[in-house]
């Protein structure tokens, strides 16, 4: 089970309204490489992981991603909480405003709603961990792109923090993959699926 802690992992205090920035940042809530996809990916994949430590790592990183989702939503909320009707017409945010006013709803920067097809749970440990490593890189690139276009330090600071977490998570998934490889035959890591063909698995 999960319990709610009344704090953000990294504090968010934004004073300046900016619907355009909100539209960019929103992508890390409901976009293809966003925090919702990240948490759902890891918390879905963990059940069938053959290595208990790796299942535990997916639980802990998936939980941290939920906290990152909250940071992203807090940024979007604070960028739009004092939105004037005139500001609502900002190009890019105007279409979102018509459907959601200043409510928080998971969508990509280009307007595509969140969709479970943005992540995979393939039921194969090597495939899933390779996806997880790629997912951390895709999220890092998205944060790089945000840092290129956003100038407000009150927005940049939490974004830099979230970007740094992607690099750390990549390292952990790489280590999880090494641990998974230890259970397999180094002559051919693809000889069987360690999550499905249990009769071949090394007992560790």
């Amino acid at each position: 089970m999960w319990k709610y802690e009344q704090r953000l992992q990294y504090p968010v205090k934004i004073n300046k309204t900016c619907p355009k920035t909100a539209q960019y940042i929103m992508s890390q809530y409901g976009g293809p490489d966003g925090e919702m996809a990240a948490s759902m990916r890891y918390l879905s994949q963990r059940y069938t992981m053959p290595d208990k430590q790796v299942g535990g790592l997916l639980t802990d990183i998936g939980t941290e991603e939920l906290a990152h989702m909250e940071i992203i939503c807090a940024i979007v909320y604070q960028l739009t909480r004092n939105l004037t009707p005139e500001e609502a017409k900002t190009a890019g945010f105007d279409a979102y405003y018509i459907d959601h006013t200043a409510g928080i709803w998971p969508a990509a920067a280009a307007g595509i709603p969140f969709n479970a097809c943005e992540f995979q749970s393939k039921g194969d440990a090597i495939t899933d961990l390779a996806e997880d490593m790629a997912a951390e890189q895709k999220a890092r690139s998205t944060y790089d792109n945000i840092l290129r276009v956003v100038t407000d330090p009150e927005v940049r600071d939490p974004i830099k923090f979230l970007r740094a977490r992607e690099v750390v998570h990549f390292q952990r998934f790489g280590e999880a993959l090494e641990k998974t490889k230890d259970r397999l035959d180094a002559k051919n890591y693809y000889y069987y699926n360690p999550e499905f063909d249990k009769q071949f698995g090394k007992q560790i």
């Binding site: 090597i126 390779a130 990549f170 390292q171 790489g174 090494e178 490889k181 180094a186 890591y189 693809y190």
Partner: peptide, 11 residues
Amino acid sequence: NQCLAVPFVPA
């Protein structure tokens, strides 16, 4: 564990 056709990240 370093071999062809599989990712490797040092611990």
